[in-house]
Design a protein around this nucleic acid. Sequence first.
DNA 1: TAGATTGTTAATCGATTAACAATC
DNA 2: TAGATTGTTAATCGATTAACAATC
Lengths: 214, 214
Amino acid sequence: MEKIPQPVIKRLCMIYQLLNEMFDKGHMTVSSSELGTTLGVGSHNIRKDISCLDGVKSGGSGYDIVNLKNAIAQKFGFENQKAACVVGLGRIGTAFLEHAHNITSEFRIVAGFDSNTNRIETIKTSVSVYPAYQISETARRLNIQIAILTVPNTAAQDAANRLIDGGVKGIINFTDTNLVIRKDDVFVKNMDVTGEMRMLSALIRMDMNNSITM
Amino acid sequence: MEKIPQPVIKRLCMIYQLLNEMFDKGHMTVSSSELGTTLGVGSHNIRKDISCLDGVKSGGSGYDIVNLKNAIAQKFGFENQKAACVVGLGRIGTAFLEHAHNITSEFRIVAGFDSNTNRIETIKTSVSVYPAYQISETARRLNIQIAILTVPNTAAQDAANRLIDGGVKGIINFTDTNLVIRKDDVFVKNMDVTGEMRMLSALIRMDMNNSITM
DNA sequence: TAGATTGTTAATCGATTAACAATC
DNA sequence: TAGATTGTTAATCGATTAACAATC
């Protein structure tokens, strides 16, 4: 099986999202140029990306939305629902737990964790909640693959270590902490708002300078 | 002024964060290789990135942390605090509003918006809150540069349009919606959890295949 | 069929890595 | 000074763009 470069994986995921939306709107087919303009890349790029997939039927009238959707799902293993958890049940963490049922058929939030046992006892949710020291054991038992990390900065690295010990392979890190990961089969996606605001701020500034230069 | 490529801007922002942490720990200097290993890139890369800055003093014993920090802040305009706002005061939005004081000296959340006037009246926060129809006017009046978007998917595009009308240049989009932006001096950072979980899921899957191939 | 759109190869572009002389 | 580390040029690598023949 061919290895797919990260930027391509990313775009195919975005295409998948678009296809879902288009399907919901009742569309049947879509062309590479339509996808391209919506995503802000050239149609060449889209076609190149799609060429990484198997079993895509196409022709003179674009792609069949359902067929393309399935091809991506099949390539990336989206058909079988994956177990996820939330670590850190503060305001944001709890919000995610309660959103749990909103989440697509691809993922299911099966556990919440917090180091504060009082909070665990008082929290009201349909999802089971556990104390932080049970992270590794529970993650392994429930076969949790992905974790949403919403603990305070100081607790982030420890929680990440426990998750990885429990076999978790992907972490969505809402913490401002730069997690140190030893295993190279574990992926982290940083979502810290401060960092992203800073990045936007820098982009805006650099863009202004470009405009002045022009 | 030289134009800096996006990946470089991103890494410099990450370096800035690391420098802050190191400074808080009382360190005085840091080498390109230390920064490189922490960020997972080669020391060459770090030095190349830093060469985009002005006024960095260095020598045989690495970089002066304060000096480097200032050089980045100066390049990207981090010295002057920027106004930000939160649009959509559901659970997550409110959490950000209340975090407001935690946020660095670089940013200050000066307003919250929601279309539900009942919610606006009952919400308890030190930050002023306004109805959604006042987004453009208020953003312009308070010179808001960056917005955190936490509205329901269906309201996302409309809110984004109002923000852009009000002169906002950066949007942190917590919505699952792919925002359509016409102006090319407006930057969007997508933070939708579903999409990121999907991306992680795909990376994990592809990685497994790689391992098998090896 | 004819028209539109894809698939794929080749060319360009840009970013990362390597190496080594210059610097503190 | 000597040692360590940077700054910068050149080489490699990979991704994007272009173009056009193949396809439905």
